[in-house]
Amino acid sequence: MLLISALLPLVPLLSLGTAYSTLSDNTLKGIPSPHDEFDIEKGAILAPILRPRVSGTEGNEAVRQHFLDFFRLQLPKWKVELHNSTSTTPTSNGKEIPFVNIIATRDPPGMDQGEIGRITLAAHYDSKLTPTDFIGATDSAAPCAMLLHAARSLDDALTKKWEMMAAEGFLDLGGAEGVQILLLDGEEAFQSWTDTDSLYGARALASDWEYAFHPVMSTYRNPLDSISLFVLLDLLGSKGPTVPSYFKTTHWAYKNMARLERRLRENGAFKSSPNHASKLAKRKDKKPRREPHFLIDENKNDNSFIGGFVQDDHVPFMARGVEVLHIIPSPFPRVWHEMSDDGEHLDMDTVEDWSRLVTAFVGEWMELEGFFDYKKEKRDEYEGKSEF
């Protein structure tokens, strides 16, 4: 499915002018947990994704409808579009297989498309053809669920920020960013990974967006140019992941996420931590243990980047100049492409922690401090939902 490759030479330097502001400890502690919504059997967000969903099958269509229902019923302010393409595959005997990407966007109101930059969060929702009935919980049902939870956790704060900016006339000055979620179809190879048997949906979308020009004199030339950072989640949900920093030009963004992870751990908000209150309560010695980290390269220096990366849905975008933060473990989890990559083998504390970290990262990127309302009643409202 994924291969280690040499670094593409086409990625330009990232502008360091991107806005970013720190969230307070109280805000970090208040980020809601998905709790029962990530239950692998009955959870309203995760459970419907934990099924075979090979591109072009009924399972794939059912999961896509689950996503569409989620945005329609819970996040009606998000604009949702479908990007359709078809392709033959090595196993389709000449038949065209449909690939359907979901593009969910939450933009500041009243602004022209060519004037809005976006942080883009992505994961693939298809599953592998073989072995038969493969689920792909880490690959990538759990990452998709994380993105849905993050979108809902951020939604009210985005509304409040943009209402304040509009009232004070700041939106008229331009420069406001939106949030975009890509749920991509056809990442998996049908037979064996090649440039043509993989990344079907991502390749089609990046190609189409390259020529979907905004009006002349727009700040951003096309939808690709509008992406300020492409954050791709993959293979997340197993216990004890280690995620390197793959790209020198986005190492500063990686460090921001790593700093957030450190703060969440220090604040006792990471449930997978051996020093979380729930873990300490079960230990006789009560002594703190060494704190592991998901993001292991916070202190990596510029001379340590050797130019390799993992093949994944970011490649067609990166080849066209989009800056990428790839959140994928190395080594891959033991369940990778095995039948054991199912809901039973997810470490749910780790899944929740990734959800919390991604939400916090986007909250800082979007400068949402002061706009969250994570009071107990609001958390109960989120966490008590069991169906749409």
Rank of each mutant, 00 (worst) to 15 (best):
E387K: 09
D347E: 08
G175L: 11
D208T: 03
K128N: 01
G268D: 00
E187K: 08
A137Y: 04
M217F: 15
S85G: 00
T249N: 14
R118Y: 02
N222T: 06
G178C: 08
R259A: 14
H326F: 07
T132S: 00
H293R: 14
H66E: 04
Q74T: 15
V351C: 00
E210H: 09
E367R: 05
M339A: 12
F170W: 01
W354C: 04
V315W: 10
L7M: 10
D208G: 01
A277S: 14
E338S: 15
H251E: 06
K300F: 08
V324F: 03
R265W: 09
V322N: 03
A204E: 00
K95W: 10
G17M: 07
W209V: 07
I116P: 01
I227D: 07
A176G: 11
S87M: 02
V54I: 14
G59H: 12
R53S: 08
E383S: 12
S245W: 03
F190R: 14
D155E: 10
A19T: 11
I31W: 04
S278W: 03
D155S: 08
G343F: 02
E266H: 07
N26A: 13
D197S: 05
D234I: 05
G30A: 05
F305V: 14
K375M: 03
F372R: 00
T88Y: 12
R334H: 07
L264H: 12
P223R: 09
A167Q: 01
E163D: 13
H314M: 02
A157W: 07
I97T: 06
I45G: 02
D126I: 10
I119R: 06
L184V: 13
P316H: 02
D302A: 08
V324N: 01
S33D: 12
L224T: 10
D69A: 03
L346M: 11
D285G: 09
K29E: 01
M318R: 11
E187V: 09
G59E: 14
P108L: 06
G343T: 06
A151M: 05
L236A: 03
W78G: 05
A319L: 14
S15I: 07
Y254K: 02
D133N: 14
F99H: 01
L260E: 04
I49L: 04
R106M: 10
G178D: 02
H149K: 11
W336F: 05
V310C: 15
T57Y: 13
L73H: 12
T18D: 15
L46P: 02
L10F: 06
T249M: 14
R118L: 08
T138N: 04
G114D: 13
T249W: 01
T57G: 08
T18G: 15
D342H: 14
F38Y: 06
